[in-house]
Design a protein around this nucleic acid. Structure first.
Lengths: 219, 219
DNA sequence: CTTCCAAGTAACTTGGTGGTTACTTATTAC
DNA sequence: GTAATAAGTAACCACCAAGTTACTTGGAAG
């Protein structure tokens, strides 16, 4: 602990920056080509570092992949928690997020395909995040924003389906909608549709909120 | 054209059978590992044929992949057309189909990931099939099974999302539902949920079918 | 100054993988 | 029967990509 260890500047040595460059390049390569398709040399080149450093910092290709995935997961969760409100807003919001962060969706997709009975990466953390998500749904049910007749787990699965699918299957979306997923017109149109469609989650008229205004520590 | 060319039997030469064995083995390998991950030797071994024959019949790995994809596509379309009726039935039916035919979903997923701005395989055919699907939705709208206020394209995209997502993202489904997608209890439960949820597509009471009973050449 | 280790580089090894060569054998057309 | 072609085999090869070896250099601590 001598100097504040400036991380910027043009020092020829800069471990932090190198590590970050590798991670960022790896994210792009893995999102683009998946684990099997990604080339370590390509990552090194993209990061403008020597390939050897990649092994220095991460051991091997798979450990790097896991780290990339874990990191993205953490980032996502961080700002996932900040959101709440009624399904109409969440749906369109998450849909747009999925469209914007294609890397994220693609990583999950690669994970799904790779995960032939393998253990889940960062399991503990994700379990906790999911549990928190379910709890937030229950709170919305209590507040009468979502029908209490729907199982929170199914609500969550349904919402994920609706928001992620187009970004996950751009070729099918293009086929059906006649526009690429990246087209802003599609995104606006779909967001509008989801806002309408969110009514499916609302309570029916005859339903009364079970706890009209329980403790709402939700944002 | 001399003999009826018996395709069964133990003749040492059997082109048809060889071709089919390769395709079937390739389907499994590609569904499991994707294009980049699949090993030509593994396909040959699985098919119990000499690797050379694979090149004999299909030229190269990519052409084989495209053929596998095209074939699955055709098979799917064939019995896709046979179905109709109200969303409650279609949704749960297609959901179960997706769970049962994981290879199909996985292939689409690999395609989605691989398809970085590449041209779509079997485009023409799939366009036509999609158009027919949209037409069937319009017929159901005319018959009052689906709300006419919903854009058929969005209806289709939504249905696909709901039915394919769990099979496409088994790890997320497991995380949310606490059961593997393959678990029959999950499948039954989800099918039941979708039947209820299908109400979202139904017309509201105030809506009246625009063409109460137009020509319904739909099955 | 010099010691020591982390950061960094270039060239190499090794194994696997898509694709080929050179060949044999069955089937069919005439 | 036999020529021609399609079906099939084994061994091979060139290349590519993950991971290593052996080395140099910067910088902080004493």
């Amino acid at each position: 602990m001598t100097k504040p260890a400036r991380t910027s500047g043009f020092s020829p040595r800069n471990p932090r920056r190198t590590r970050e460059r590798i991670l960022s390049a790896a994210l792009q390569e893995f999102a683009l080509n998946g684990f099997a398709g990604a080339r370590v040399d390509a990552i090194a080149q993209r990061a403008a570092i020597n390939k050897r450093m990649l092994y220095h910092y991460f051991g091997n290709k798979e450990r790097l992949f896991r780290e990339v995935l874990r990191l993205k997961m953490v980032q996502r969760q961080a700002w996932a928690e900040t959101l709440s409100g009624d399904p109409a807003e969440s749906l369109s919001f998450w849909f747009e997020a999925a469209c914007k962060d294609a890397d994220w969706v693609r990583l999950l997709e690669w994970e799904a395909l790779q995960n032939t009975d393998r253990r889940l990466i960062d399991k503990k953390n994700r379990r906790a995040a999911t549990a928190r998500g379910l709890e937030r749904i229950r709170q919305r049910q209590a507040r009468g924003l979502i029908s209490s007749e729907l199982d929170p787990r199914h609500v969550m699965l349904t919402m994920r389906s609706l928001t992620m699918f187009p970004a996950a299957f751009p070729q099918l979306t293009q086929l059906i909608m006649g526009r690429p997923v990246s087209d802003p017109r599609f995104q606006r149109e779909r967001a509008a549709f989801l806002k309408k469609f969110a009514a499916a989650f609302h309570p029916l008229k005859h339903e009364l909120p079970s706890k009209p205004m329980a403790q709402s520590k939700d944002t």
